[in-house]
């Protein structure tokens, strides 16, 4: 081999070792959260370009979709007006029932009921890797978003859990969904009230595994799983999903259940970040 060829080979190997070493060091620091600020800074630099790119692609898609859907718009408008009238009547009735309910609660002295103050956010991007399932929303520190705030969504007219905020920038935040392998959620079976720990299974599957459930608990297919409120991140009682299978080992004191999340992460467009719990009645 000539000197030139030998030099080139040496450069290749030195470069490889250097790049792998840098990657390895970053992984090490990343796990100790020392590079958290570096990651945030790096993402803050990349974010404007990423956001602009994502919006451009979605803009092009929306443009073609809107042309395609134009003919249906008139009919939809008429239908929407009819639906709106119907909902206006329902809201009026709801307000009446709410007032009556509050009055009755006061009369019989029921304890406080809680609701949540939320901020609506649009999902602007997701992880480009099949390996991760994180999503990015268009609300950040300037909207009052903080780390570990719970994130919910409304699907099929039901409030259900999406995940929690794990990283906040000024104009964006990153959400770790409950299906992520690093997500742990205090959960319980709504019917039997037995609690356990819900662990995400992605990228292996889009289901979650409810672990450490007392073996005495009777679990059936379709049982609803809700947040238990333990751990202090998620408020109690938010719907997570439904049991699809149960695994009971012969030995041991616990059983496990596979849970299908109520949220369809593929169709998720908007989410609500719970900023604080508010009392609506006393």
């Amino acid at each position: 081999m000539t000197d030139n060829g030998e030099d080139r080979r040496r450069i290749r190997i030195v470069l490889l070792i250097t790049l792998l070493f840098i990657s390895f060091v970053m992984m090490g620091f990343s796990q100790r959260r020392i590079t958290l600020n570096f990651k945030s800074i790096a993402y803050a630099v990349v974010f404007p370009f990423h956001y602009a790119g994502v919006k451009s692609i979605e803009g092009v898609k929306d443009f073609f979709t809107s042309i395609k859907n134009n003919r249906h718009l008139r009919e939809e408008l008429k239908e929407t007006k009819r639906t709106l009238e119907k909902y206006e009547r329902i809201i009026y009735e709801y307000e009446e029932i709410k007032r009556e309910n509050e009055r009755l609660r006061k009369l019989i002295g029921i304890q406080s009921r809680f609701d949540y103050e939320t901020i609506i956010a649009e999902i602007i991007a997701k992880s480009p890797q099949n390996f991760y399932k994180t999503i990015i929303i268009n609300r950040g520190r300037n909207s009052g978003i903080e780390k570990y705030m719970p994130v919910i969504a409304y699907q099929n007219n039901r409030q259900c859990l999406v995940g929690k905020i794990i990283d906040v920038q000024k104009y964006s935040a990153r959400v770790q969904p409950i299906i992520d392998q690093l997500s742990y959620t205090g959960a319980m079976l709504k019917r039997s009230r037995y609690s356990g720990l819900l662990v995400g299974q992605s990228p292996i599957s889009n289901y979650c595994l409810l672990q450490y459930i007392d073996k005495r608990a009777s679990i059936s297919y379709g049982d609803e799983v809700v947040t238990s409120g333990m751990g202090g991140v998620y408020p109690k009682g938010i719907l997570i999903g439904r049991v699809v299978s149960v695994s009971k080992k012969r030995y041991g004191i616990f059983q496990e259940a596979l849970v299908a999340p109520e949220v369809d992460f593929g169709k998720l467009e908007e989410v609500y970040v719970i900023t604080k719990k508010v009392t609506v009645s006393e």
Partner: peptide, 8 residues
């Protein structure tokens, strides 16, 4: 960086 996962 965009994934927010393990950097590197």
């Amino acid at each position: 960086i965009i994934s927010g996962g393990l950097l590197g």
